[in-house]
Design a protein around this nucleic acid. Structure first.
Lengths: 118, 118
DNA sequence: CTCATTGTCAACCAAGTGGTTGAGAAATAG
DNA sequence: CTATTTCTCAACCACTTGGTTGACAATGAG
């Protein structure tokens, strides 16, 4: 299920610490210890965060103590989803705008007839 | 904090039901009742989901029973974040590739004449 | 105004999350 | 091989989350 995968990716990035890990890994691979150093949480906590990122496919390692690497391809999954609905929504706005213009064109006088009070 | 906002947006989209709501709203506005109909959870549950989407800025309503509307601009927040690190990561891969090529160039014994593509 | 419809709030519950500490596995150094 | 360093697993805790049901607020129709 690719749907479930998307859920895991979004959930993984919903945490600021994990987003920061991704940000840092985008400029250089790093070991768990190196990654953990700047934060004031335990190494275990960071290890857990990395596990979440790994299960979302955002990050990988060749072995236990090897440097962690960012898997940037996963980003495509998200951007594809986002683009799809963003474009669909924008298309709707365009059509709505067109419709509103059309209505204003065809009923310029009759509209002023409806002096609605409340 | 814009950081916190990103967290809320990602978290909101980490749920399949909420992604489906967004997908449906991208093609037409709809009331809470209409939105809830297809799912086999309670109306209250859907109302909660919409609240989450609303607090993430993904959705809005003019009044209580008015149709819910998708706010597609928020998508920009995500794509900006994603693009930034995706590009940074890709840039790194390019540099790494270049480095590897360079190393392969210098290792072969008689390959020192490989400056043809300048 | 009165009533029915529509949506939200409140309280609750089971499961999940991000953090902790302690113990132990696994990789590297001596 | 042994010792040390690096990382993960397990158990636990407080808090959040997605769901429920029941009561109630707010809006629209008669």
């Amino acid at each position: 299920m690719s749907e479930d995968r998307l859920s895991r990716v979004f959930a993984a990035l919903a945490d600021p610490t994990r987003r920061d890990l991704v940000a840092r890994l985008s400029s250089a691979d790093a070991t768990v210890g190196e990654l953990a150093a700047p934060y004031d949480v335990s190494l275990q906590a960071v290890s857990k965060h990395l596990k979440v990122l790994e299960e979302a496919g955002l990050v990988s390692r060749e072995s236990r103590r090897a440097p962690v690497r960012l898997e940037a391809e996963v980003f495509d999954l998200m951007t594809k989803w986002i683009d799809r609905y963003q474009q669909q929504a924008e298309e709707r706005y365009r059509r709505l705008d067109a419709l509103l213009e059309e209505m204003q064109e065809s009923t310029p006088r009759e509209a002023s007839r409806e002096q609605d009070a409340s």
